[in-house]
Design a protein around this nucleic acid. Structure first.
Length: 231
DNA sequence: TGCCAGGCCGGGT
DNA sequence: ACCCGGCATGGC
């Protein structure tokens, strides 16, 4: 009978889907935009990324060749609203160089590489860590790999399914063991977790009331101790 | 006003 | 193998 996860997890998905509906992620027009967005959204609110992408579009720089033609300083200026703009301009340039040298500048060719092999290649690029690599793989290339982000960590920690300090790979494997590897499902599931995270399981306050996952076992506070004693 | 947001890197222990 | 400081903007 294969118990569905230790508790929840597998059961979260249908509940969230029913509550929020399809998310239609990643919010981008093209696969190249997915790559750009994945880098720009590192530790940054998506609304700021939207401003940066709008700047790029208005400058006609929202394609790989056009972006690569820009001076790094000019690219940094355009993506300024997304924060860390000097770092991120460098990262975009690093990805562009990788794409051109290693895959002839073609995302279609790049995404034909086997999942784990391509993942290693992406991680070797300076500025691409695990979450960014997996976002590109899943949302850009349709590879069946689960994306773990801060929301995912917080939600699983809140439900005591795994420690928030657990290594990325452990959390990822938890999902990939429980959920059969289908990209559309991984895509939707992660998008739904972000949706939950935006309204509940906040860093500052729990906000458990009204959460669709409220029926599942969880703790209200996030401290190691149970928060302030109520005496 | 301070805290937060869909991380990652490099240097130090 | 961890831990930390740095990177930066815009919204509430």
């Amino acid at each position: 009978m294969t118990s569905p996860g230790r508790r929840g997890l597998g059961q979260f998905y249908p509940v969230l889907l029913r509550h929020f509906g399809q998310q239609h992620w990643w919010p981008a027009e093209t696969r190249w935009e997915v790559v750009v967005g994945a880098i720009l959204t590192q530790n940054t609110a998506w609304t700021n990324v939207e401003k940066a992408i709008l700047n790029l579009r208005r400058a006609g720089a929202l394609s790989a060749p056009a972006m690569e033609a820009l001076a790094e300083e000019e690219l940094a200026r355009l993506i300024r609203p997304s924060g860390y703009y000097n770092q991120k301009a460098k990262k975009l340039k690093a990805f562009l160089r990788f794409l051109r040298l290693r895959h002839g500048g073609s995302l279609r060719r790049m995404f034909r590489i086997e999942t784990q092999q391509l993942r290693r290649e992406l991680l070797a690029i300076n500025g691409i860590g695990e979450e960014t690599a997996d976002s590109i793989l899943l949302y850009g290339g349709g590879h069946a790999i689960f994306v773990v982000d801060a929301y995912t960590r917080r939600i699983l920690d809140r439900h005591e399914l795994i420690s928030a300090q657990a290594p990325y790979g452990e959390i990822q494997q938890l999902f990939q063991r429980e959920i059969p590897p289908q990209a559309p499902v991984y895509n939707e599931f992660h998008a739904l977790l972000v949706q939950v995270g935006k309204h509940h399981c906040l860093k500052a306050a729990p906000q458990c009331a009204g959460c669709p996952l409220e029926p599942f076992p969880h703790r209200e506070s996030q401290g190691v101790n149970d928060g302030p004693q109520r005496t």
